[in-house]
């Protein structure tokens, strides 16, 4: 592992531990958090997920309908499965199965 990759992993891993554990370990009686901090913290999660969702779908978009069909099918499978049963894992697997299945069917 190059030192750059190792340093990047260590910094990200340490931050992950801090983000996940410190708010629990440092928990005290409710202290007032400034409103703007709470609002921006609350928005970062959805913003990050939305950004990653768009960024991961963008390279898959194509003007070729045959290439686009599995992406549309997989996306609809995720949404449909989640609406039927709100489970992130099930919806993810359904999307992947439908996408892979359509690639197989369409050759």
């Amino acid at each position: 592992m190059t030192w750059q990759l190792f340093v990047m992993a260590l910094l990200a891993g340490a931050a992950n531990w801090a983000f996940r554990a410190l708010p629990i370990l440092l928990r005290r009686e409710r202290t007032a958090t400034p409103g703007w901090v709470e609002r921006s913290l609350a928005a970062i999660g959805p913003a990050a997920i939305a950004t990653l969702c768009v960024a991961s779908l963008l390279p898959m978009l194509s003007s070729d309908l045959l290439a686009l069909a599995p992406v549309i099918g997989g996306t609809l499978a995720v949404v449909g499965t989640y609406l039927a049963r709100p489970s992130v894992v099930l919806a993810t697997l359904a999307g992947a199965v439908v996408h892979g299945g359509m690639v197989w069917l369409l050759g």
């Binding site: 959805p46 997920i49 939305a50 990653l52 969702c53 991961s56 779908l57 898959m60 997989g74 996306t75 499978a77 995720v78 949404v79 989640y82 709100p86 992130v88 894992v89 919806a91 993810t92 697997l93 359904a94 999307g95 992947a96 996408h99």
Partner: peptide, 9 residues
């Protein structure tokens, strides 16, 4: 992408 979409939902 499926995982992110499901998390977004």
């Amino acid at each position: 992408p499926a995982l992110f979409l499901a998390l977004l939902l």
